[in-house]
């Protein structure tokens, strides 16, 4: 800063700390609620200090869930979310990196057409083509399956553009040196381009993992079998139920469990996450 005014610095910290309190508030309250017993919500407002039902609540949710709400236990739902997040992240990265490779390192008829076809997917989020996409998946007998949960979501213009952009910055001479060194297209991709793309892949993985884990509308549409429920869509059923019955302690335990994995990924891979976020917007 240009001036050194301790009062201004103090004011800045004050604003930030108050702001952070507001940002943390909903999670703190949820966390507290998830440590309390079932009867403690009958009287007035949510308590502000932790209770002693933590282990019991979380164990109950992981193992049996809110069976009355028709949702399965949390643990299998979390596994489904994990499978979905990993499959989407890996699938998107794989098909995007190879299509970007084709677009940048080859010249062939209909190259521009292919590029535009991929580009158009940017303009067609699931939300605007719900019913026909559902019908396609239904016709392919992919309802209630992991394939149905993931494959329709793995086309990605953003990831393809990211890799294309990155490939364009790779020095021309590397492919020339590799060709002189006798490397063909597959070998060049595997030995040179893929290792060079490591950081980009990792950054993209963080973003896409969160994207996959947080999917809501799609699993809601194509799963009717509780064995394929994901945790984010599953808790909605419980929340609706909890509004009628005082089971908020259990619902909030479920909410925490649904939120924790992606939050951990972001906090521990913050640098990659920020890189991924900024790069995908280029």
């Amino acid at each position: 800063m240009v001036e050194n005014r301790p009062f201004l610095t103090f004011l800045s910290h004050l604003v930030l700390i108050l702001g952070l309190l507001v940002v943390f508030l909903p999670v703190y309250i949820a966390l507290i609620a998830s440590t309390r017993g079932p009867t403690e919500f009958l009287s007035g407002i949510v308590p502000l200090l932790p209770g002693d039902h933590t282990i019991a609540n979380y164990r109950a949710m992981l193992q049996s869930g809110l069976s009355t709400s028709g949702a399965p236990p949390l643990f299998p739902m979390m596994m489904n979310s994990l499978i979905m997040a990993l499959a989407i992240a890996i699938g998107k990265i794989v098909i995007s990196i190879i299509s970007a490779y084709a677009i940048v390192y080859f010249r062939f008829p209909f190259r521009a057409l292919a590029f535009w076809a991929i580009f158009v997917t940017l303009m067609l989020p699931v939300e605007v083509r719900i019913i026909p996409t559902f019908e396609v998946v239904a016709n392919l007998s992919m309802l209630n399956s992991y394939a149905g949960l993931t494959i329709p979501l793995i086309a990605s213009a953003t990831a393809t553009f990211l890799f294309r952009q990155f490939f364009l910055t790779v020095p021309e001479e590397l492919i020339e040196a590799a060709r002189v060194d006798g490397a063909g297209p597959i070998k060049f991709f595997w030995d040179i381009l893929l290792p060079l793309s490591r950081t980009n892949i990792a950054a993209l993985f963080v973003i896409l993992f969160i994207y996959g884990w947080n999917q809501y509308l799609w699993p809601l549409l194509i799963t009717t079998d509780t064995r394929y429920y994901t945790v984010v869509m599953g808790i909605k059923r419980m929340a609706a139920y909890a509004d009628a019955e005082p089971l908020w302690n259990l619902v909030m335990a479920a909410v925490m469990l649904a939120a924790i994995p992606p939050v951990i990924v972001i906090i521990f891979m913050q640098r990659l996450f920020i890189k991924g976020l900024v790069e995908t917007e280029k």
Binding site: P171, E173, L174, E176, A177, A178, V180, D191, I192, P195, L196, R198
Partner: peptide, 11 residues
């Protein structure tokens, strides 16, 4: 071939 920017494989 020896290139202007060396074209060494960075990794």
């Amino acid at each position: 071939m020896v290139f202007q920017n060396y074209a060494l494989y960075p990794h």
